[in-house]
Design a protein around this nucleic acid. Sequence first.
DNA 1: CGGACGCTTCGGCCCTCACCGAAGCGTCCG
DNA 2: CGGACGCTTCGGTGAGGGCCGAAGCGTCCG
Lengths: 236, 236
Amino acid sequence: MTTKDPRAAGLARLAALAADETRAACLLALLDGRAWTAGELARHAGVAASTLSEHLGKLVTGGLLAEERQGRHRYVRLADARVAQLVEDLAAQVAPGAAERPRTLRQAGAGSAMARGRTCYDHLAGRLGIAVTDAFTARGLLLQETGFALTDAGLRWFGAAGIGLDRRGRRPLARACLDWTERRPHLAGVAGAALCRHALETGWCVRIGSERAVKVTEAGERALSELLGIDAEALR
Amino acid sequence: MTTKDPRAAGLARLAALAADETRAACLLALLDGRAWTAGELARHAGVAASTLSEHLGKLVTGGLLAEERQGRHRYVRLADARVAQLVEDLAAQVAPGAAERPRTLRQAGAGSAMARGRTCYDHLAGRLGIAVTDAFTARGLLLQETGFALTDAGLRWFGAAGIGLDRRGRRPLARACLDWTERRPHLAGVAGAALCRHALETGWCVRIGSERAVKVTEAGERALSELLGIDAEALR
DNA sequence: CGGACGCTTCGGCCCTCACCGAAGCGTCCG
DNA sequence: CGGACGCTTCGGTGAGGGCCGAAGCGTCCG
C-alpha cells in the first residue's frame, strides 16, 4: 500500500478546488442556486477579472460548476445538487468555529433578512425553512427523530397540495441540510426543492432584490397557515 | 460585499487540509475508525516520518484529527463522526470519476475481502453493509424510498436484539453513507454504529488481519439469518 | 462602424508549502 | 546504563499556484 493511491489523489484534487479563498467565496455565493456572471463573481470576491477567469476554469474543469455562455457573458452555476450538498456540508463544518456578527447597519439589515428566509441552493432556509420543517414534523409528515424521511402522510400532503415530486433519479426525496444561521436541520432534497419552486411560482414567497433572501407574501402567509398551520409570527 | 468573507476563509482553510495527497491518504486510511500511529501512516503514505509529523500537526490543529500519546507512540484518529462523514462525502464525490481496478493478485485478494465486508469509520460497509441495509428495508425497519430513517418497527428491532441506541447528542439515529464499491447507500449514524459495535463484540464479525476488512463468522451467519433473514450466500 | 464592455490569455512576480535529511529528545528494553 | 526506536524540530530546496496588468478577441449598442 506504499504505492500512490488514486483515491487519495482524487480527494486531494477535489479539495484543492475549494482550498482557495477566492474560489471558496464563489462556491458560497453560488449556493443561492442561481447563475452568476464571471464579472459579478469577480466583484463579489474582490479580485481582477483575469484572476477570476482562471478560477472559473478550474472549477468548471473540476466538475463543480456548469457554465453557459450567452453573448459576451459567461454564466456559471453549481453543477448539480450533489455539488451543492457538498459545499453545504463543508460550510456547515466551518460554521461552528466562526460565529459571525454583522458590522454595519446595512449588513445587519441584509443579515436579518437572510436570517428570516433565504434559498439554500434550491430549497428554503433560514427561519422560514426551519418553520416549514418543524411544521412538517409536528403534523407527522416528516420523521426527524429516527433519521430524515417523509412519511406516507407526507407524500399524500404533497399530492393534495398539487406539488409534484420527481421520483426518478438517485437524488433522495428528503434530506437534512444544516442551516448556518439556525444551526438546525431543514428540509432539502427533491421535496425541499419542489416546495421551494412551488412557493416561488405561486407567489407564496418573492426574492428580495438580487440577493438570495426571500420574503413571505400575504398570500404565502395564508397558504402556510392553512396547509401547515404555521403562525405568521414565527416567520418574523 | 467586496470585503473579505470569513466564511470563505474558513471554508478554504478546511478544504486546504484535505487538498494535499499525503494528508488525503491519511484521512482515507483513518476512515476505518481506528487509531493509527504516526509511523504507520508515514509508511502507508510513503513519505518520511518528519514530513508526516508536520501533516499530523496541521490536521490536529485544524480539528480533523484527535490525538492520543502513549509512550513513544502518537496515535491519531478522526476527531468525530462529523469529520468522518465529511471525508466519506468527499470520497464519494470522487469515486464516480475514478473507477479503480486492483493491479496485483494480492491486491485483488485484499480488494475482494474489502468488497465483501469492511468498516467505514464506525459502521459496516461493503456487500455486508448493503445486505444488512437491504434486509432492514425489506422488513419495514428502515425507510429508504422517502429519505433515510428508522421506522417504529426498526426502533423495536434494536430493543428486541438488545442493542442499545444512544439518543442523546445531535448525531442522527440513521443516516445514509454512500458505499464506494457498491455505489449504494448503507446504514450509518448512531444505529449503524451500534449495530457494527454489537456485531464485533458478540463475534458476528471479526476483523481480518490489521486491515479494515471484516469477515462474517458462522455464528454471525446464523444470527443475521435469524434476526434479519439474510441469506449467507448474499455475503459471499 | 466605432467605441464600450465582458471575458480570456500571457508574462512575470512573489509567497506558500511539501519534501527531505540531520540532529535532538523522550521512551522502551535488554 | 546504553542502544534501539518513535517522533519532532529545523534549515534548505524546489515546485506550484494565486495575483496583477497589458493586450487581444468577440459581443453589444448607439
